Computed example of a mutant assay.
Amino acid sequence: MKPTLLVLAAGMGSRYGGLKQIDPIGPTNEIIIDYSIHDAIEAGFGKIVFVIRESFEEEFKELFDTKLAGKIEVDYVNQEIGKVPEGSVYNLEREKPWGTGHAILMAKECINEPFAVINADDYYGVEAFTTIVDYLSKSITDEENCMVGYQLGNTISENGSVSRGVCETNDNDHLTTVVERTHIEKLENGIAYKENEEWIQLAPETTVSMNFWGFTPKVFDHLEAQFISFLNTEGDQLKSEFFIPSVVAKVIKDGKTQVKVLKSDAQWFGVTYREDKEKAIKAIGKLIEKGTYPSKLWA
């Protein structure tokens, strides 16, 4: 059975002020997610599931239904504040869903096979998709998972802070812990993250998660159990977030799973900030010159 690709795209509308303003980076108006989908199809994924918001569902489907018709099976799920386990209580004044862990949980009913997770606005590289498909296509147990790990220095934006899951591994390249750092920046004296108004240095070669995870469907059980607990303790907060690295760290600590880190030295790029666009255009241009992609991706 071919693995599925789960694309976290629910935040696209708010980040770009509406889907019509999504920044094209390819020569024929391709956006970053187009290149990830192309790489996924070439690598051997059998289905793509998009996590989106109801507010731009129609617009989003117009963008992707036609270009992907006949190329790969496509499904959609919505991430909304009210989509929580039955009996859960939360602050009704909250305006946004609870982050990446909540987003993945939305796909529980439509994924029954090993699957990978990516952010919609990150570029991961061709080899990363091939590597994770190879892993997920093996006869793995329910509790064997993986992630593509990147070097921190290759994932920093020059235009502001970023969030990254900072990883620690053992000698067998299995993840021992991962901590979501929500404010990492490139400073004059190196890379550091901010915690309690203090800057703490990180080495450029530090392994970080870019939310390129590989899971079996068993992860949905862990997600749901932890999300119920999360809402019990933090559901009343307006800006609390349920991050997937935190979920993974807990199941590892509890001895319930293992996560193989598939390391990549690829240069990440994305459009976290509008100022990142020029760098992304140049990077795609170089890949087209090398023959990695055609100039018209969906010809």
Score class of each variant (00 low, 15 high):
201 Q>D: 13
70 G>P: 09
62 E>L: 13
32 I>R: 07
209 S>E: 01
66 T>L: 13
176 T>K: 03
31 I>G: 04
238 L>I: 12
95 E>M: 09
122 D>H: 04
64 F>K: 01
137 S>L: 12
17 G>D: 10
293 Y>W: 08
240 S>D: 07
187 L>S: 10
8 L>K: 05
179 V>H: 13
130 T>A: 04
294 P>E: 04
181 R>M: 15
78 N>M: 13
243 F>S: 12
14 S>G: 01
177 T>Y: 01
29 N>D: 12
150 Y>G: 07
190 G>K: 09
82 G>L: 05
65 D>C: 13
35 Y>D: 08
99 G>W: 07
249 A>S: 15
268 W>I: 11
114 P>R: 11
18 G>T: 05
212 F>R: 02
15 R>L: 15
18 G>H: 03
268 W>V: 13
126 V>R: 12
276 D>V: 10
74 V>P: 03
266 A>T: 11
221 D>K: 09
141 T>R: 14
259 V>N: 00
207 T>Q: 09
235 G>W: 05
21 Q>I: 01
59 E>L: 06
214 G>M: 06
6 L>W: 02
244 I>M: 14
232 N>Q: 14
63 L>C: 03
81 I>P: 11
11 G>L: 04
79 Q>S: 10
137 S>R: 15
23 D>A: 15
23 D>E: 14
169 T>K: 07
264 S>C: 04
242 F>L: 06
146 C>P: 08
114 P>A: 08
102 H>R: 07
117 V>C: 08
24 P>A: 08
14 S>E: 09
281 I>K: 14
178 V>E: 03
91 N>P: 11
142 D>K: 14
209 S>C: 07
8 L>E: 06
270 G>P: 06
56 F>M: 02
110 C>Q: 05
167 C>K: 05
176 T>M: 10
84 V>L: 04
91 N>Q: 06
279 K>A: 13
146 C>T: 14
127 E>S: 12
149 G>Y: 03
64 F>L: 11
26 G>Y: 07
194 K>F: 04
26 G>F: 01
279 K>C: 07
131 T>S: 14
298 W>E: 06
288 I>R: 11
274 R>W: 04
263 K>T: 04
283 A>T: 14
254 D>K: 12
84 V>E: 01
71 K>T: 07
224 E>K: 14
205 E>I: 02
147 M>S: 11
63 L>E: 02
120 A>L: 00
20 K>S: 12
214 G>H: 09
108 K>T: 08
44 G>S: 11
187 L>T: 11
185 E>L: 02
103 A>G: 08
46 G>N: 12
128 A>Y: 02
214 G>W: 01
30 E>A: 08
63 L>N: 01
10 A>N: 12
266 A>M: 09
66 T>R: 02
90 Y>D: 03
132 I>P: 08
178 V>W: 03
188 E>V: 06
172 N>H: 10
54 E>D: 13
248 V>H: 03
214 G>S: 09
